[in-house]
Amino acid sequence: MRESWLSARSAVALGGLLLAGVAAAARPDFTGVWGVYREPGAAAPQRGAPQPALPLKPEAKAKIDAYHALVDKSGDTPGGFCLGTGMPGSMLGSGGYPMEIVQHDKMLVVVYEAHTEVRHIYLGERAKEQDLFPDRNGYSFGRWEGDKLIVETTHLKEAVDQARYPHSDQAKIVEEYRLVSNDDGSKVLIANMTLTDPAFYTQPIKSEKKWQYQPGVRLLPYECTEPAWEAHLEELANKKGAH
């Protein structure tokens, strides 16, 4: 009797393992280097092309206008000061540079080449609220729904300097990633983004980004502050020489 009960329990456990294995096998692997996708035959996107107006609340528009009044004449940007793009600019293109995804069971690491900006998408245990603090890329927690990866990002800093979608610190960004194949069999990663921000917007903002798999491409280092360090050393050397 006991033997048959053990056998039944083993069978159930084995079945569970098999099901888990099937579920894991159904998950796509996003690991690799991804570049900006361009439709076959499409021209390169024009820099500075006009964009549709955003459904901004008046107080948010005033903040963003004040920022642009400061920088538009000089053209200053965070990137020009070696600052990473931050969300959602990072996931929507990051200056046209490639990104690399390293996928693990409990975490995905996304490295955007521009400014070597890194995002961690945690899949295991969510961090405790008291251990989090605001950041330009926020805190990202994901889950698999079949073959789709759903990522929620919170704990963002207010960022009026976002090129396309400025936001407040109340912003929440949900990304939905899925893998498709082109007619030629090449892999395309599609990311649908929804930005919800009751402090800045009257309605959710939606956007789509496509990435093309780039086998054989390696991410390059993006050292940006070294010239400033060299200039500082030169200044020190000049001062020393003057004495």
Binding site: D72, K73, G75, D76, T77, G80, F81, P227
Partner: peptide, 9 residues
Amino acid sequence: PALAHHSAA
């Protein structure tokens, strides 16, 4: 001396 900041504007 390096360019301290950059802008294409």
